[in-house]
Nucleic acid binder design. Structure first.
Lengths: 133, 133
DNA sequence: CTAAAACTTGACGTCGACGTCAAGGGCAAG
DNA sequence: CTTGCCCTTGACGTCGACGTCAAGTTTTAG
């Protein structure tokens, strides 16, 4: 398939696909006239790339680890990077979940203007002087 | 405390603190000469802001929801935004975890060059022609 | 008093993953 | 042949959360 079809099938822009190629994370065949041609597997490839981007990996990092995904084995440097990114992702998950819980508390409070309804407001460690006015 | 101490206690730059103030998400008293003065509670405030940034919220969004965090109640628009961000965070957690699992697989494969060791390689839906060479 | 450290506002720089516009080439249908 | 759509490379624009430098003021230490 050509770039337009890949773009619509993977739900990205053609600009993004050319950018991926420029970054060395997506390869393409070329027709004699120079147009890019991709195999069907490219769709899933692009989705994987998108997922890695969404996980906070940079183009450079993705370029380093994609060969490992394919071959199943990694040089020392790549393995180090893999572990580092894995750790970063785990930490990010924790941060996100904690932020999510904080938002949950605010949402719950906002949904219940009832002054008698206090989910875990009392667990707040600071501020005793709330209702002085 | 002044801006430098807050910066070191909250582990951010003074530039960031001034930027937060400019975005309306961090307030400060001023000395007669114009220097910023913060209460101790500002440290935790800044950490909360940082956590929201880390969770992918923009300055604008943080500015919208911080009052809700303080007052415990939200206008319709703010509540909508709270729920939207909460949903986005939940989705992001899922994406991150899936990316993490994919990295785990690659790491596990790379750590065991043993050809007999195949953790869940066989569960891959595609590619049967692996060991032809 | 004086030098150093910390503070002020203002303004330009950065970085990455693209968006967008320009100017042209390739190709099937009528 | 020409219309129209898809494709090409090149190059500049964007956006957000700051970094960084400049030039001047205030506070602190000795």
């Amino acid at each position: 398939m050509r770039i337009g079809e890949l773009a619509s099938r993977a739900n990205v822009s053609t600009r993004a696909l050319r950018y991926y190629e420029q970054q060395g994370i997506l390869v393409s065949e070329r027709t004699p006239s120079g147009q890019r041609v991709y195999p069907d597997s490219a769709v899933e490839r692009v989705r994987l790339i998108q997922q890695f981007y969404a996980a906070g990996l940079s183009s450079r990092t993705i370029a380093m680890i994609l060969p490992c995904v394919d071959t199943g084995h990694a040089q020392a440097e790549a393995l180090e990077r893999l572990r580092a990114e894995r750790a970063r992702i785990a930490a990010a998950v924790g941060e996100l979940q904690e932020a999510g819980r904080k938002l949950d508390r605010v949402i719950e409070l906002a949904e219940h203007p009832d002054p008698a309804y206090c989910p875990s407001l009392r667990e707040q460690p600071a501020e005793r002087q709330t209702a002085s006015v």
